[in-house]
Every structure is written in structure tokens, then in C-alpha cells.
Design a protein around this nucleic acid. Structure first.
Lengths: 253, 253
DNA sequence: CCTTGACCTTTACGTTGCGTAAAGGTTTAT
DNA sequence: ATAAACCTTTACGCAACGTAAAGGTCAAGG
């Protein structure tokens, strides 16, 4: 099937202007332009628009969507499976907000008292989601940049799967650091999970792991400003916090 | 409890800038300004912010939120109950989109074919929602304007409840007209429901209802351009469509 | 006491994702 | 053939903040 702008607009629920804008910024170009300058969209464009709308539903910026779908390694099925998980999260957030509404009603009616921070449950979760989105982008950017590193790693004899697992772990550590830092306690459960992950991560790149070397590295992190800058990027004071968590994890002092 | 900007920001999940902006536009003013010019928020402001965020979650514009919560007749509990219903709808939309994702995955995997318009189910529902939001605003504006009419109606001996029910019905008819029109068939289920509602509505204001008079009114709608303009505002050709639906409903020709 | 760092303030310019004319060419229907 | 319903580009407008910049205020520690 072939569509002109407004026909595609009608079946998809977006406006004609939106489609022209997407053309303008290069997000979704028509299959061809006919003799009188009309935009003509084909099957491929319909499917791409669907993908775009899924991402938009998840509040991904058009710029990010562009990077994502135009990547050479873009896997449609994988993306869809990802959408599903994200949508599930979004629905869970809605459920939390609905529960908050119910509780607020109850507090008005029955005098059930409510703490101030309880009143915003569900809204705060959005912050966390947004953060993960931010990291999501960083991960993608890194995957782009690190294609070089990737081949280096391969050369060093690491299997592709191991390498993937390692970079994934690295990103996970950054997220964990932020969450752990919020607890304010390097001995907290989150913080110890962070330290454990850090050990796991190290074991990928180090030939022989030892507690002493791990602790030494942690101290080095704090001393060397290149590392400080790296880990403090996520939260300021993050490097010191990570060191403290590791020291406690290793049971050293 | 009293909060400065960023403290309130932290418990609510919005940014400090957002709170300053809300102050600037008059949406949420701090309880007071202390001696050094700091904004201080109290209990009332916390609760109001919660309400604002509920509305924002439903994508109501700040301008509309302002009108709503600063209305003298604003009923918090009623608003919350409304929020709940709307959130439920939003969740239903998410469910539809999730189903679309699943179906799309299946169509990739198993060759289950999918029509183009099926690919956008859930997205189109948003259009309808947006429309209802638009009408929601119109209804509110009307409720403002029609305070005069309201007292007129009272004078004519109508009870408050009857009047409320009638205006509500009037708005419902407008929404129904739009949906019915989309079916393209004045004999469709939706269209007949529309006609029935219209009868119901008439019976409020008319002392004696008769089929003949109803049919006559329908014809009058088409003839009188004041009515045409009124009903065509929702969809063009709406007046004629309504007339046709009524004629079929009454079993006349 | 004084300084440092974490707060707070205002002012002001930038951004995203379109909506909405305006001014005009094209296609379809009657 | 003439209107109605499409399409085009250009361009200005807007909401809801984000993000400096430049500067006052407050609590804690040396």
C-alpha cells in the first residue's frame, strides 16, 4: 500500500505536520516524491513509523530515536521486546500512582494519615526511569565508540560473549553506584551489591584476582583524578563512596 | 512541615526550577517568603502540588490546571475520583499498545499477517482521549459561562439536579455525535444511541414530548443555521447526520 | 571569627516538537 | 470549468521547563 502524508497520518494517528517534520529532520523520509512533489510512503515507512511511535510512547527524544533506528545493527524484534518491558514498567508506575490516588482519597475520607513523601509515590519513580534513560543513551553512545575497544579486546583473546557481558556489567555498576550512593551508607545492601559487581567486573580483565589488589585499586581510584572524574560523573563523591563500599566488602580496614 | 524549594523538589520528584516556574506563573505560590527571600512551602502547598502532578500526569496543560484548581468550587475528592478514572483509561491504552507490540512480534516471527491500521492500535485511542480533553475544557468553560443560564433554568422551576443532569447530557450528546459520525451510518448502534440520548435530553426542557415534534426539531436543526453551526462545530455535516439518525430512530420517513 | 561549601535568589537565553497561518500549486468530483 | 479537497514550502509561535551566570545566605569546622 502507498500513502500520501495525510493518509498515513490518518491510519497512524499522528498529524500531517508531524510527518513533514519527521521528514525535515531526517527521522522518517518518504519512500519517494512523486512528479508533483507529493510525499509517498510505502510499507517500509509504515513499519518504521510504528517503531518510532513505540519509542515516542516511552518518551525517548526524536534525536535518540534517530540514532537508534538508523544504527546499522538495529534489530527490530529485539527493540520490540525491549518496548514491551519498558511499557510494563510504565504501567507499573501508573499502578503506583493510582494507588496513591486511592490512598489520598482514603486519607480525606477516613482520616488515614499520610506522610508527605507518600503523597508522591509513583512520581519519584519517574526520576529513576529518566535516569535509566540517560544511561541507556550513554550505553548506546559507548557501544558506538567502543567498537574499537571491542576489537582490541578480541585481540586480547576475549570471547565476544565475555566482552559483551563485561561492558554490560560496567554500565550496571554505574547505575548501582548512583542508587547505592542514595542510601548514604557504604555498608548498605545496595552498596555491598555494588562492590560485589565491581569484583565480578574486575575478574573479567584481570588475570589473577586478589583482595589486596582490589583494595589497592580502590585506593588508586580515589588518588588518580582520571578515575575520580569518571566515577564522580555519576554522583559527586561517588569515587570515595565506591572505595568505602569495596573496603567494607573485602572486610579490610 | 515547612520546606524550601529544593527540599520540596526532592520529596516530590520535580526540579527546583519547576517549582520556581510554577511560582512565576502563579500556579503554586509558596506559603510565604522568609526574611532572606527564600520560598517557604507549607502543608497546603504540598497537597496542592500533589494535585497538580496528578493533572500533569494526565497531560493537562498548566494553564488548564490553573483554572481548575483555583476555581472557587474546586472539590478535591471529586477531582481525585476523576483522576482515578482517567488513569485507568491511560492504563488501558498502554495495554492496547502492549498487545500491539506482542502482535507485531508474532507477525515477525510466525508470519501472522497484520493490517497497516492494526499496527497503530492504541496510538489512535490517544486521539480520542485528546478530543475528550478538549471537550472537557469546553465543558468547564461552559459551566463558567452558563452560570447565568443556570439561574434562568432555576427560575423556570427546574431543580438543580435536573439542570445538572441536562447539561451533562448535552455534552454527552456532542461526544456521541462525533463517535457516531465516524461509523458513517445513521442507523448504526452508536447513532441510535445518540438519537436516544437526544430524546432524553429534550424531555428535560419540553413539557410534552412527541415523535412529531422531535422530528420537526431535527428538521429545524438542519434549516436553522444557528443550530447547524452549533452541531457542525464538532464534525462538519454533523447536523444532517444527527437529523438522519433521529428520523431512523423515530421510525419515520 | 572566618572561610568553605551547600544552599538560596533573579535574569535571561536555549530547546524540543510540533501547531498554525499564509500563499500557492494539484487532483478529483461534479 | 469550477469548486472542494488535497498537496507544497516558509515562517513565526508556544509550552514547560533546562541551563548558565552572577550573586546573596546559612551552618559547620578549623
Amino acid at each position: 500500500m502507498e500513502y500520501t502524508v495525510n493518509k498515513l497520518a490518518r491510519i497512524s494517528g499522528v498529524s500531517g505536520r508531524t510527518l513533514r517534520y519527521y521528514d525535515q529532520i531526517g527521522l522518517l523520509k518518504p519512500a519517494r516524491i512523486n512528479s508533483s512533489g507529493y510525499r509517498i510512503y510505502g510499507q517500509k515507512e509504515v513499519d518504521l513509523l510504528q517503531q518510532i511511535l513505540f519509542y515516542r510512547e516511552l518518551e525517548v527524544s526524536l534525536e535518540d530515536i534517530m540514532e537508534l533506528i538508523h544504527q546499522p545493527g538495529f534489530n527490530q524484534k529485539e527493540a520490540l521486546e525491549n518496548h514491551y518491558e519498558q511499557l510494563k514498567q510504565k504501567r507499573a508506575r501508573l499502578d503506583t500512582i493510582m494507588a496513591t490516588v486511592e490512598k489520598t482519597i482514603a486519607s480525606i475520607e477516613g482520616g488515614v494519615s499520610m506522610e508527605d513523601n507518600e503523597k508522591f509515590e509513583g512520581f519519584k519513580e519517574k526520576l529513576i526511569e529518566d535516569n535509566e534513560k540517560k544511561y541507556g543513551k550513554e550505553i548506546r553512545e559507548k557501544y558506538g565508540e567502543e567498537t574499537i575497544n571491542e576489537s582490541n579486546a578480541k585481540l586480547r583473546g576475549m570471547s565476544q560473549e565475555d566482552y559483551d557481558a563485561m561492558t554490560l556489567l560496567g554500565d550496571e555498576i554505574m547505575m548501582l553506584l548512583e542508587k547505592a550512593y542514595e542510601t548514604g551508607d557504604p555498608g548498605s545492601e545496595e552498596s555491598q551489591k555494588l562492590a560485589a559487581k565491581h569484583k565480578e567486573w574486575l575478574m573479567y580483565s584481570w588475570p589473577n584476582y586478589s583482595k589486596e589488589a582490589h583494595a589497592g585499586l580502590a585506593e588508586m581510584y580515589v588518588a588518580d583524578e582520571r578515575f575520580t572524574a569518571y566515577y564522580d560523573k555519576v554522583v559527586k563523591g561517588g569515587t570515595k563512596f565506591l572505595r568505602d563500599a569495596i573496603i567494607i566488602y573485602l572486610g579490610m580496614e
